[in-house]
Design a protein around this nucleic acid. Structure first.
Length: 873
DNA sequence: AAACTGTCCC
């Protein structure tokens, strides 16, 4: 379809371009707001409002007329110097209003403030009252020459006989410099004085209200406009359209356009830019194509907005076609056009053309530089982006808010904490921290670089936080494994500010990592009450929360209810099935996704490979690995190799796994060797484990977990001497095994257990429950698995230590405190041990409870003495 | 004309 669009441009490419600059493009920027002094309209308005009426010309002696005529003649030919000279030389009695007016008009046109002031002083010293037409001319002169304050002084002085056009002039001048409040003040004063506005008044005031986001006032003006009969003026309706788009009321804007009989190029442009602004770039392009079909003249604004639409929908071919049209229309020197092209090429994934567009630009502004910085970030060239920022600065282009946030984004994505801190210093030096988007970007940078302390420091210094500030912090805590902080901040936020869907998407991963099902349910309720559940991001986050909290059933229910699933929805479900040991269901979901026409990405492949690995589906795993390369043209990354090594190792193909590591085209990291080491434990291959472990220790010498893993392998082989040596090695490096802990949520409250936790108030009943179970197990022929004790001591002692594992304590606590029949959900920070796994199976049978245990790797569903992992984890 | 917060894998 986009191709046909591109073609239609070439077919209808002979539109007029000459009028582009002069058309009344008054919708986009305050700069163009006051259009009636621009080229096409000037004469009409000046002659009707400003020129001296003939009746006031005094008919006197011929000589007097002569002086005036001379001055006017000089003015007519644009000879300001001689006109002023003659004015100064003439006697007061020789001059009439015509002469003063003409000179002031010329001063205004040539923007000659000096001469204008001189004329003003001549008028004053001649004692001519500043009122009526002369007053208006003076105001116009000052304003045109950029002396708004002077103009305002005279404006206020002659307030009583001000005409509408002067009010319009002042209002639009204030709007031009961004002082919308002053424009609104003048508008209200005007209303108070009973002066009725005209179409220009309303265009201007609508823009002011819209920019300040005062939608209610806009609607009131809309009513006024219709009452006063301006409802058919396209300038006014165009402003209304733009206003509604700005406040996000897309339907109202469309309705106005549909009802507008006389559409001009600005009306069309307003539709295109409004659609782009509100995320409907496809519709924008449809309007553009319709313009071509109807042979409506196209101007610079049309092309700029349509190129932006191409950028958003990623249509390179149409973008290129528009580029060509712009060149034909002689826009190649327009900075705005070139900046948009740069951005379009970058967003369409074409960095080279973006760079070329940048280099070809005659005039580069801060926007051009910022767009190029963003282009580098998009391609992952973070250091180049940062370098570009400093290059821009050294070339004398001062960074603005946009360039600051862009370079911070580069630091954030590139994980460059130090460079980010440098930029922060730059911001402090230049007093830019007070700007909220900059502070927000700073927080995001610190959060993405893992420094939540610094992020919080920035956060705490923001006097008035917006929704982005809160979301950034909450999401930062979630991502940096500080879920409790995320929840705490969320509670704090609710006192001050209303959360939105994004807040929920930021917060839910915190519940997921805590396995906080009840809190997660509470948030789900909040989502439903506030109507956030229709947002796909929120729904995806919810599904993932239920997966991670062990409730695959709820996850699946929600998943099935989503009518339009995106890639992430599918990926969440695939990895969810994988985590819960349902490999075949993961595969079925993957296939359904393909049928739905969704293309998997690298993460989807990681998830499906991971699912195969956890269910021991070797052939299927290889199938996906190969199809990733051959069908999807993707290059497997470290994580994909890690999954394959894991899969081979778990299924007992240890030497094949070893070979894969040796022959893989990228350098294996500790995770890859670690996966094989795990396999060595499962299959009790001490010899290979030693070989593999040395690779691991070399790559990650400070990770105590790997030493413990090898120690366990030795312990299982009862090589106590080696265990001892390894423990010494750990001690020498000063490493500490991260202590195992497990937690359980009962009525929304968490209880955390560490190994052999006797401090708990219910410790006595917990231990007696576990002891009874142990006795029962023994009677039924289960011998405790002592190999995990890591202690070379008497068996009794080992048994005691085994009984004290944190997951056992948490499970026992659950049995004691949750109503019968309720599923017991426990989460653990490390992998579950063999003995605990055995006991959990037994527990599920004798207590007739379903137990769902989440360890650091996956879920175990214990039911009737069996585990969903089929003892394979 | 450009920018800041969001869901998935390891």
């Amino acid at each position: 379809m986009l191709l046909t669009m591109a073609k239609s441009i070439t077919n209808f490419g002979t539109y007029s371009t000459c009028n582009c600059h002069t058309s009344e493009a008054n919708y986009a920027k305050p700069r163009n707001c006051f259009i009636f002094f621009q080229q096409p309209s000037r004469k009409y308005f000046l002659s009707s409002y400003l020129d001296v009426p003939r009746s006031s010309t005094r008919v006197g002696a011929f000589a007097k007329l002569d002086e005036n005529t001379k001055i006017c003649k000089f003015c007519e030919v644009g000879d300001l110097r001689n006109a002023v000279e003659l004015l100064r030389m003439s006697q007061k009695s020789e001059l009439d209003l015509n002469a003063y007016s003409s000179i002031l008009q010329l001063c205004a046109e040539h923007k000659c403030l000096q001469e204008g002031k001189m004329v003003h002083s001549v008028i004053s010293s001649n004692g001519i009252p500043i009122e009526g037409v002369l007053g208006a001319k003076l105001v116009f002169m000052y304003v045109s020459c950029g002396a708004l304050r002077e103009g305002r002084r005279i404006f206020d002085h002659i307030l009583s006989d001000n005409k509408v056009f002067l009010w319009n002039l002042m209002m639009s001048e204030y709007a031009k410099i961004g002082d919308y409040r002053e424009s609104i003040y003048l508008f209200k004063k005007m209303q108070k004085l009973g002066i009725t506005g005209n179409s220009y008044t309303f265009s201007c005031i609508l823009k002011c209200f819209a920019t300040l986001g005062r939608v209610g006032e806009c609607k009131r003006i809309h009513g006024c406009v219709y009452k006063l009969g301006f409802g058919s003026y396209n300038t006014v309706v165009n402003s209304l359209i733009a206003t509604y788009f700005k406040s996000g009321e897309v339907d109202s804007a469309h309705k106005l356009f549909d009802e507008l009989g006389d559409r001009d190029v600005v009306s069309w442009n307003s539709m295109i830019s409004g659609c782009v602004m509100n995320g409907f770039s496809h519709s924008a392009l449809e309007f553009f194509v319709q313009m071509l079909i109807l042979r409506v003249g196209v101007d610079l604004a049309t092309l700029v907005n349509s190129v932006a639409a191409c950028a958003n929908v990623g249509s390179l071919s149409l973008g290129r076609a528009l580029h060509g049209q712009g060149v034909k229309a002689c826009f190649s020197r327009e900075v705005m056009f070139n900046n948009t092209l740069l951005d379009m090429y970058s967003k369409c994934g074409n960095l080279n053309d973006a760079i070329q567009a940048f280099e070809k630009m005659g005039q580069k502004t801060v926007v051009s530089w910022t767009s190029l910085i963003a282009a580098y970030v998009r391609e992952g060239l973070y250091d180049d982006a940062i370098r570009l920022f400093y290059e821009m600065e050294s070339k004398g282009v001062s960074p603005d808010v946009y360039s600051m946030t862009s370079v911070l984004h580069a630091c954030a994505c590139g994980n460059s904490l130090d460079k980010g801190r440098d930029v922060h210093n730059y911001i402090r030096k230049n007093n830019m921290a007070l700007c909220l988007p900059v502070s927000n970007a700073l927080m995001d940078m610190y959060a993405k670089c893992g420094s939540m302390e610094e992020a919080y420091l920035v956060f705490s210094q923001i006097p008035v936080k917006d929704i982005v500030s809160w979301n950034t912090m909450i999401g930062g805590y979630s991502k940096n494994s500080l879920p409790n902080e995320a929840l705490k901040l969320f509670a704090e936020m609710q006192k001050e500010s209303r959360p939105d869907g994004i807040t929920m998407a930021c917060l839910l991963p915190a519940c997921g990592s805590l396995a906080a099902l009840e809190i997660g349910r509470g948030i789900h309720g909040c989502i439903l009450r506030n109507g956030y559940s229709s947002e796909l991001h929120v729904a995806n986050a919810l599904i993932d929360m239920y997966v991670k909290c062990g409730s695959l059933v709820h996850a699946r229910l929600l998943f099935d209810m989503i009518p339009e699933k995106d890639l992430i929805t599918w990926t969440v479900m695939i990895s969810g099935c994988g985590m819960h040991g349902l490999g075949n269901e993961a595969i079925a979901t993957f296939q359904k996704m393909r049928i739905a026409g969704i293309k998997p990405d690298e993460i989807t492949f990681t998830s499906i490979l991971y699912a195969c690995s956890h269910s021991g589906l070797l052939n299927e795993g290889w199938g996906f690995f190969n199809s990733m390369i051959s069908e999807c043209n993707m290059e497997p990354k470290l994580e994909h190799y890690a999954c394959m090594v894991d899969l081979l190792a778990r299924t007992g193909n240890l030497s094949k796994a070893y070979n894969l590591i040796e022959t893989m085209p990228i350098k294996p990291d500790a995770t890859i060797w670690g996966a094989l080491l795990c396999g060595c434990r499962i299959h009790h291959d001490v010899e290979l484990a030693e070989k593999v472990a040395e690779h691991v220790f070399e790559l990650e010498p400070d990770n105590a977990g790997y030493y413990v893993l090898l120690a366990n392998i030795y312990a299982e082989a009862e090589k106590w001497e080696e265990v001892k040596k390894l423990r010494e090695r750990i001690g020498k490096r000063g490493l500490k095994k991260s202590p195992g802990c497990s937690w359980i949520e009962v009525q929304g409250k968490f209880t955390t257990f560490v190994s052999a936790d006797t401090a708990h108030p219910q410790a006595k009943s917990i231990f007696s429950l576990l002891n009874n179970l142990r006795i029962k197990m023994k009677n039924e022929g289960h011998s405790p698995k002592m190999r995990y004790a890591l202690i070379n001591a008497g068996d009794m002692e080992k048994e005691v230590a085994l009984c004290g594992h944190s997951e056992k304590l948490a499970m026992a606590f659950g049995i004691l405190n949750l109503p019968s029949g309720r599923t017991i959900r426990v989460a653990k920070n490390l992998r579950v041990c063999d003995d605990c796994h055995e006991m959990a199976k037994f527990m599920s049978k004798t207590t007739r409870r379903e137990i769902i245990l989440r360890d650091s790797n996956r879920f175990h569903h214990f039911k009737d003495g069996f585990c969903s992992c089929r003892d394979f984890w």
